[in-house]
Design a protein around this nucleic acid. Structure first.
Lengths: 331, 331
DNA sequence: TTGAAAGCGCTAACAA
DNA sequence: TTGTTAGCGCTTTCAA
């Protein structure tokens, strides 16, 4: 500690610099003088030394799949709202759906002794997650579960309930010929959307048409599929999309075919992704509570850090059924 | 070092664990044995101790304004492409256009002795940037300059040239009644767009109409302005938008007024933001070379770290004039 | 090839 | 109130 050049002892300076002057009954004049010198010297505390000593980093790692869309931004906001007043700060990275990269990032976080890691689960990354667990670092899955890793705490959007809300909305418009376009992903809250679609139809006594339930890779172009389905004489009068990105494409594809949205076909998505609100798109959707999810994940992280002993994993499925009605279902 | 339980000296173990076994002529058998024990013990090197000793973190901080749109994601990709093979790794945070938050984040990065910081410049954050400079940590502005901080290296998109390309495209369609909608921001590469608009008009001998050059806050709703401008009998037949987000709104607003895009009004944006490609939007635009910018910033960061002594600041304006023609200018 | 030991900057226990 | 000191885990120099 360079500030000891003030002429006094290390500990005195140390107490002052870590804000414990009060407690230690150090004279205000000494305090002021030390603080002044520290400032003049451009003193910046060395977090590595501090953390090495305390054996914790006060950092919580956030691992997103990528930084596109609003998802990461909004979750981060939620995380910050919780962490703001604590000693903890978030650091962000991404795994880009790449197991090698995820491994590298988690290794880095472990080496830096991050106090907890919040990750959007990635199926191919189980080895990395297991390593985090074995290491004793609290791990939280954000936004979905991961099959085969039941012991990890999860904070996710209850997409099943949200999907029901979406389906009910279409049904309430009198539409019964509904098709579903979703992401072909194994994770539970993604699958829940197609499942909710099926169970809603069943409940209404509507027969499921296999051909009207389609799954795609994330970045798929669904236009061809839409053209295929809507070229037949017996075509749907509504489309439920598991992700807004498909919904946006669907509207364009339908209008390209000369069909009117919503008069001929009503369309609803999920997640209120950016772009859905564009007036030339106007996709109705269910808003996902991203900020609340981030906040919950952060407070759960704090709890796990506090608790120390591994308890049973909990699953928080946050309800988020806010229906946003836009042009695509506004009759 | 727990691995010393292998029964040998700390240094031997140390050499092996840091991959210097070769150099130190340590027997393969010892090496294997130590590595095996380390694995069994679940040994994870302590980065804090290592970095404390080396007095560097091998971390490069990235400070984005926010994580919306593709911008951050693509820049990060570029950064990773350069940092991949080095000892350095990026950590990300955001300042949300909030001086307090920026201060907090930079303080954290300095305390953790990040080896360099790459930031999207924020006008109200000069105090924080100055602190980074005073601290001797290399700082790089990504995407724009900041008035009053001429000594900071900059890697930015040459939006001036790109804007000319956009204007030339509209002019090549025979459109001469062009209006401009841009972001009301003081930073150079944002201003350059309006300036390029003006100089292009001048070059063509077209008189500038003050009323056709409008600046807005970032999140503005430009619909009213469009309605105002296009309700007059003498109205533009083209719109150049400094940001795609305005272009997207413009298309919606124009079509809402019963005007045809591009027949009545051609529209072009800047940046190829997500959403512009939606078929129901179809906004022509100039692609911004985000990944290249990130890569350049990262390699510049490596240079600055290497160089140690503060040299003169350089400005890299990366050319990126890729015109993407979509529906909104496809005649 | 191996062992011993200093020291990075900070915290905190202990003594005065 | 203030001073001394050990030690966090690791790198690296020096000697053996």
């Amino acid at each position: 500690m360079i500030a000891k050049e003030a002429g006094i002892a290390v500990s005195t300076t140390g107490f002052i610099l870590s804000g414990k002057a009060r407690k230690m009954k150090i004279s205000e004049s000494t305090e002021k003088r030390v603080l002044g010198i520290a400032k003049d010297l451009g003193y910046v505390p060395n977090a590595m030394a501090k953390n090495l000593r305390r054996n914790r980093s006060s950092i919580i790692g956030l691992l997103f799949n990528h930084l596109k869309h609003h998802w990461a931004d909004e979750s981060l906001r939620g995380v910050r709202s919780v962490l703001g007043d604590t000693e903890y700060a978030p650091f962000i990275s991404t795994h880009e759906f790449d197991a090698k990269l995820l491994e590298k990032e988690t290794e880095l976080m472990l080496q830096h002794r991050f106090d907890a890691i919040i990750s959007v689960p990635f199926k191919e990354g189980k080895a990395s997650y297991q390593r985090i667990i074995d290491n004793g670092t609290p791990l939280i899955f954000l936004n979905d579960t991961l099959d085969g890793m039941p012991d990890v705490d999860v904070v996710a959007w209850n997409a099943r309930e949200a999907s029901k809300t979406a389906m009910n909305h279409l049904l309430s418009l009198g539409r019964r010929k509904i098709c579903f376009l979703g992401w072909d992903d194994k994770r539970r809250m993604i699958r829940a959307r197609a499942e909710a679609y099926k169970s809603s139809l069943k409940k209404e006594g509507i027969a499921l048409r296999k051909n009207w339930l389609r799954l795609f890779p994330l970045d798929a172009d669904v236009k061809e599929t839409i053209v295929e389905i809507f070229s037949k004489k017996s075509r749907p009068n509504a489309v439920f999309c598991g992700l807004d990105i498909y919904g946006t494409q669907v509207i364009g594809a339908l209008e390209g075919m000369g069909l009117r949205v919503p008069e001929d076909v009503a369309v609803i998505g999920m997640g209120n992704q950016p772009g859905s609100e564009f007036s030339s798109v106007g996709l109705s959707t269910i808003d996902s509570p991203n900020e609340a999810l981030g906040a919950k994940a952060a407070s759960l992280a704090l709890e796990l850090i506090e608790r120390k002993t591994a308890g049973p994993a909990s699953r928080f499925l946050l309800r988020g059924d806010d229906l946003i009605v836009r042009r695509s279902t506004k009759l």
